[in-house]
Design a protein around this nucleic acid. Structure first.
Lengths: 342, 342
DNA sequence: TAATTTTGTGTTACCGATAACAGAAAGCGT
DNA sequence: ACGCTTTCTGTTATCGGTAACACAAAATTA
């Protein structure tokens, strides 16, 4: 491996001079600079960042810990974060927890070991605070995105789950639905709790009742699951007075598993049941189908990276900055006005 | 930052002993081991991998350079590669070139600087060989996936573009289509060339003619583009004798842009035109729509990582190993038997 | 019990870069 | 030509680990 010493020997200068040429620091005579640059090109020298970061204590690397890379929402966040990071001179270590706390723990240790300068995280649950504290003990700042957790102090970049959910439920009510069920994500995630809060409040505000079984829970990653089927069976076998005519799915993958289960039961969307959900579902058809609250995923990623890097390069920042980005409601074909069948 | 020296002082041993405990190397008396482990826990020590790799010359890190992370095909490859790498004790640096040669160059330099042990790459074009040579000069092995390029010697993990394409085109012919157009990806990619070769040969073998304008080219990433529209306009305004009744799209995103353009022209799929394509299109609808050649993306990622790591940990491997994984043909609703309208 | 092996621990040097200091060379004023 | 800046370059020590060697203590063998 070519080192700064090889360059030094080749150009007949000291290693320090080579270092200075590389970093444009100090004063170098033009002729020496040229000698050194020639040697660098000839020998194909590339600085060793391990050696650099050993002395500089900075790696110019960010850790990005996603909960589900196969969900387009998260892969877009990743893309946004990487773009912005590179733009600002940083690299990104990207990892995937699959919503698994143990995996998260593991990756946090990896991040510590590789001495990333900061971490962008969508935590798996409230216990993740332990991981964050561990990072903070090592002076590694953390930006949370998508979700927040109890006790965290620092930058957040979130979507407005509350507002998006209110708008979705309101839309259902506006088009005549009164029996609306919620298939939520896991209650240990702040997004789920916010979405449920909005759902409950919106129904109450409109004097609509929440029947038993109307609120149920699924994993955010369950595209196809037995659990979904169970939930739908229960919902659709309620007696006519209670049987929901619309369902609010807490995220895109849950919506997909719902629509699949309904299909198996020969129930049509939107003819028999309307569905709305959080997060975009990639629509590749001629005409997009799902009524959704679409979050600005790329932007969430970009801002997360930017905030993190700003914090790294600037000590005198506020204790915490919270950005809450509103989702866009797209009304499409999965929701349709209720026509009274009686 | 806590170092091995702090642990040494705390446990009243030498740094070397601490190192031995951490790495389970050499013989350590049980009592000392316990002292050291206690100190490690108390001080929250995490080894500095920069320091480690400086001396060991290995980073236990792989570089993964994708051409389009927002394409589910590639994000699945990424997932597969990361899973396997972690399983084998490596981390992954993931980056995204957007099919841009300059970005690729940039990322290769980053990889060199961060001293990844090996690189998994889907090259942007034949000139990428320069980048690969640069890596090889630094003794960094490269595994190509999805695409191959001229002059590359080393491991490849590819999908069988030729076979998949033949099967798709054959399917169209079997259900009565005779006028079949190809909207290909860029000709500088091996996958495009293979898919075109299969298309041409299959038509010839069945005595079908390839009219002028039947073969055209789009970017693999163009989900929605003016170019697509232009191409479709040209195709659909051919005179009745030549107007294609079926289109073979070289990848998923091209298929999407085609179907969108057709929609704008009020042409229905599959009633008026059948479409088949390479790569899965995430079907979230009750019933999947596209007839596709689906590649085992996860497997491509996993094998790429495995081959690379094997090569890193094993000198006496063959010069090159080429895996070609067959795609699965899924016949769905976007292709339908031709009914003669005359 | 002395000789030999095994076990357990420490010392020194080094990986590749750079900060801090030192000192040589060149420029400048009188 | 002399001293005094300014510009340029080199030396030394260090970042946090570990390999290589050295050596004392304990265990084993003769």
């Amino acid at each position: 491996m070519v080192t700064i010493y090889d360059i030094a020997k080749n150009a007949k200068v000291s290693p320090m001079t080579v270092s200075r040429v590389i970093n444009n620091s100090g004063n170098i005579r033009l002729t020496t600079r040229e000698k050194v640059e020639k040697a660098i090109k000839e020998l194909g020298y590339v600085p060793n960042s391990a050696a650099r970061s050993l002395i500089s204590k900075r790696t110019k690397t960010l850790g990005l810990i996603l909960s589900d890379i196969s969900n387009p929402f998260f892969s877009k966040v990743a893309r946004g974060a990487e773009d912005k990071a590179v733009e600002m001179g940083y690299s990104v270590f990207m990892t995937n927890t699959d919503e698994d706390f143990e995996k998260e723990k593991n990756y946090i240790n990896r991040m510590l070991s590789s001495r990333v300068d900061g971490v962008i995280l969508s935590p798996t649950n409230n216990n993740s605070i332990k991981h964050i504290q561990k990072l903070n003990q090592h002076n590694i700042p953390v930006v949370l995105f998508d979700r927040t957790i109890d006790g965290f102090v620092g930058d957040h970049v979130l979507g407005d789950s509350y507002k998006g959910s209110r708008d979705l439920v309101k839309h259902l009510i506006d088009i005549g639905h009164e029996k609306i069920a919620l298939v939520n994500g896991p209650h240990h995630l702040s997004t789920s709790r916010e979405r449920q809060r909005a759902y409950v409040e919106t129904l109450k505000l409109n004097d609509l009742s929440i029947h038993e079984h109307y609120i149920s829970e699924l994993d955010f990653r369950s595209v196809q699951s037995e659990d979904a089927h169970q939930i739908l069976m229960k919902l659709m076998s309620l007696d006519k007075k209670k049987q929901p005519t619309a369902i609010f799915a807490a995220n895109n993958f849950i919506a997909i598993s719902i629509i699949r289960s309904l299909r198996e039961m020969n129930i049509n969307v939107p003819e028999d049941v309307s569905i709305v959900c959080f997060d975009e579902i990639e629509h590749v058809h001629f005409d997009p189908f799902f009524t959704v609250a679409s979050q600005p995923a790329l932007e969430i990623g970009r801002i997360s990276a930017q905030y993190l890097i700003e914090r790294l390069e600037n000590d005198n920042l506020d204790e915490e900055r919270i950005v809450i980005l509103p989702p866009e409601i797209h009304i499409r074909k999965s929701s349709k006005p209720l026509i009274d069948k009686e």
